[in-house]
């Protein structure tokens, strides 16, 4: 990844929407720009250094388990393979009951319209 522009990247992350849509907020985090990082590496950095309360899922780290999917600027992407190279807004995927922050309960479909990116 080419090192260009500013030294940090801003992640706007949707938080606590599990309580209600009204209670949801966006928190912003500045993470030092690193070469060869993915969004997952940045989330780990946030959890370790900036905000221990952030909830997100990680497992295989190679784009196989498909379970760390989120919306990055509105598009479904896996955090473990999404490149960490620009300011982004991250939200949980739609269509399932939210557990907390970016973690959803895929075994419980949400009874409302599905996100446009989930095939409907």
């Amino acid at each position: 990844m080419e090192k260009t522009g500013k030294d940090s990247i801003r992640l706007r992350i949707k938080r606590d929407g599990s309580l209600s849509e009204e209670a949801a907020r966006f928190d912003e985090y500045e993470v030092p720009r690193q070469e060869g990082w993915t969004i997952m590496n940045a989330l780990n950095y946030i959890h370790e250094h900036l905000d221990p309360s952030i909830a997100y899922y990680s497992s295989c780290r190679i784009g196989k388990c498909d379970a760390c999917d989120v919306l990055i600027d509105g598009a479904v992407e896996l955090t473990c393979i999404a490149k960490f190279e620009r300011d982004v807004t991250i939200e949980p995927v739609e269509g399932s009951v939210l557990i907390r922050d970016l973690v959803v309960d895929t075994s419980r479909p949400k009874r409302r319209k599905m996100g446009k990116l989930l095939g409907s």
Binding site: Y57, S59, C60, I62, K64, C65, D66, A67, T106, S107
Partner: peptide
């Protein structure tokens, strides 16, 4: 501990 069918070493 994870999602059934979306966790663990087997699928990797």
């Amino acid at each position: 501990k994870g999602y059934a069918g979306k966790s663990g070493a087997t699928l990797t």
